[in-house]
Structure formats: C-alpha cells, structure tokens
Design a protein around this nucleic acid. Sequence first.
DNA 1: GCTTTAAAAAGTAATTT
DNA 2: AAATTACTTTCCAAAGC
Lengths: 204, 186
Amino acid sequence: RLRKWQERIRTKDAGERNLQFALSEIDRMASALGVPRSVREVASVIYRRALNEDLIRGRSIEGVSTAALYAACRQEGIPRSLDEVADVSRVPQKEIGRTYRYISQELGLELKPVDPKQFVPRFASALQLSEEVQSKATEIIDVSAEQGLLSGKSPTGFAAAAIYAASLLCNEKKTQREVADVAQVTEVTIRNRYQEQIEAMGFR
Amino acid sequence: MTNPADSIEIQNVVASTGIGQELDLEALAEDLPGADFNPDNFPGLVYRTQEPKAAALIFRSGKIVCTGAKSIDDVHDALGIIFEKLRGLQIPVEDDPEITVQNIVSSADLGHNLNLNALAIGLGLEDVEYEPEQFPGLVYRMDEPEVVILLFGSGKIVITGGKRTDDAEEAVEEIVERIEGLGLLG
DNA sequence: GCTTTAAAAAGTAATTT
DNA sequence: AAATTACTTTCCAAAGC
C-alpha cells in the first residue's frame, strides 16, 4: 500500500513537473510565433485536457505541446502553418501533424479545415502590402474557392497565390519568390494556383 | 449514367499464410535467387514473383505475407509459385496452406468533382480527417462496411481496410448515397 | 511505436535536364 | 520551365526491438 502511495506521489510530481515544462514550452513557442496571450491560454487548456484524458502516453510532451499550440491557433482563427510551428518546435513537422490529428480526434475539437483567407493579413503585412491588396486577395480566394478550386489544395499555397495575384492587380507587385518565402511554399506552387485563380476570376 | 461501382478496380491485395514449417532464412536467402534478406533491418525475407507480380515476406516461423497482387486469384497463384519453389528446395510445405485475405485496396471514380470542405462538415467532422496542408485527400472512416475511404477533389476515391471484394462495392454505394443525401454530388 | 512490402489517389517539393 | 523522382495519407499481416 505504502509503495503504491509513494508511486502515486511520484507520478503526480512527475506530472506536475511535466505540466510545468509543457506550459513553459507553449509559452516559448507562442512568443516565437508572436501569437496573443489568449491563444497561449487556449493551448494550455487543450494540453491539460489531453493530460487528463491520458493522451500523452506514448507521445512526447514536446509533440503534444506543439500540437496543442497549433490547434489553439486554428481554434482562435489565426492559424500558423505546420511549417511555421515546426520552425519553433523541437519535434519534426511530421510528428506535429500526426499528434495534432490524434488529440484533435480524441478531444473532439472538430476544427474546420483552415481557411486560406486567415493567412492573408499576416502574410500581406509581412510583405508590407496595403489594405487594398488584402481585400483583393480575399476576394480572389472567395471566388476561386466557390468555383471548387480549393479542394485538396494547401491553404498556405492558395493564400500565397491570391496575394501574388492581388499585388499585381493593385500595382504593388511582389515577386513570386518574395511571396513564396513568407508563405513557406515554392514558386512552382504559387504559379500553379495563380493560373487557376486568374482563370476563375475571368481575367486573362 | 455510369455506375461508380462499375469503376472499381482492385489495386492491391494483402494476404497471410504459413507453410507449417520453421525456416532457416539465411540458407533460404542463398538458395532463392533474387531474395532480399536483411535481418538487421527487418526479420522477413523478401521474395518477388514476376507473373503474377507480387511480393512475399517470408518469416522464420514459416508464416508468409503476400502483397502487391491485383486480385485474390493472383494472390493464390503467387503463393502457389512460392510453395512450389520451397518444395523444390526440399522444404516440406503443407498440402493446402490456408490463405487469409487481410486487406484489399481498391480505387474508383464517382464521376463528379467534390467540394471536400463541404463534405468534411456534411459527413461529420468526428468521422472525417481532412488536412489539405498535409494530404489532399479527405479520410472517411465508414462503419458499415468497416473500411476507410480516401476522397479527392477530382471525385476519384480509394477504398482500403476491407477483407472482402464486396466491401468496396458496398462502400461505394454507401458513400454515393451519403454524398447525394447531402446534395454534394455534382 | 518502429522496422518492410504493395497499391491507388493528388498535391507539393527537390532534382535533373 | 518542364520532366522526373520522391515523399505525404489510408489499410494489413508478419517477428522483434
């Protein structure tokens, strides 16, 4: 009995220490990503829920912390791409994605697919593009998504192409390389999505 | 109107069997031309048949996994070839080893483009995985038949996880019905 | 969990020409 | 800039770490 009691204390202590570590990691990554404090709190809640549901077993604390933060950004409507999150995490992108899918399923987060429009303000301001370009890019996304062009396409690539197209239309041209760099996609992807979107808009 | 069920093509069949005899894989690797055996990587010996084209994983216990065949008949033919090869090496093989189909992978075409975003919500986010940042297909876990379906924007689909040929057929009929019910099929 | 094998779907990415 | 190769996802069995 005594041994079991000691074991319980030990695991509880370990759990507390691990929780502290997880929360400090979430804080560190959130700072590096520049997400608001509210998102960190949502991420903390998700992590605690995962802990209570015993979802950490067989997974790294780092992985679950990162996945919780990724999920929190999406839940709050200011998504970061897996690439961006992986850049500030110690676990590889593949594991973050797999862990996110697992906790999302188990906790029943039921997050809708990422809307490319949610990347527009952040990418556009990183490129120092005007409000006009942003609303044009948003319009391009709406129109081309309505025509069924979004299915299966990466939301970052879709947003990047729309921003590139909008920058041309508003005479604030950015090169494909510049847009590709902030969105972390290749120029080839931007070119492919751009062609389809221009067509959908009835230009060219 | 072509029936999507008629477009079903079996792409891969996975099956398991056993010869009821322990094997010395080191020796077998020497005697079987074209055999790949790297015990440091994987405990099974890999042997490929040309006609029908398939790959077999042969284990020390005598159990065998066959994969890559395009039909259940091909699985039996490929394993039959392997059984004969082993007998030719003076290895006793049971008369009719039981062959169990473990998984059938099929592809099909629904004939219409799909709005995967709407489909993810319509089918129910709890049964769906759709992460286009990671993979372009929507993953749908169906209860009856118990299979997993990958749906793509083109309307092409992949059905996997079933053990019977009928599973794919039933799955296609069921998914078409569900998508139509949601008003999301062309 | 991982390791290996096979196959399709379509998007993305890294190389090669 | 186009072509090729390769990797992402799903499924399953096998023996062993």
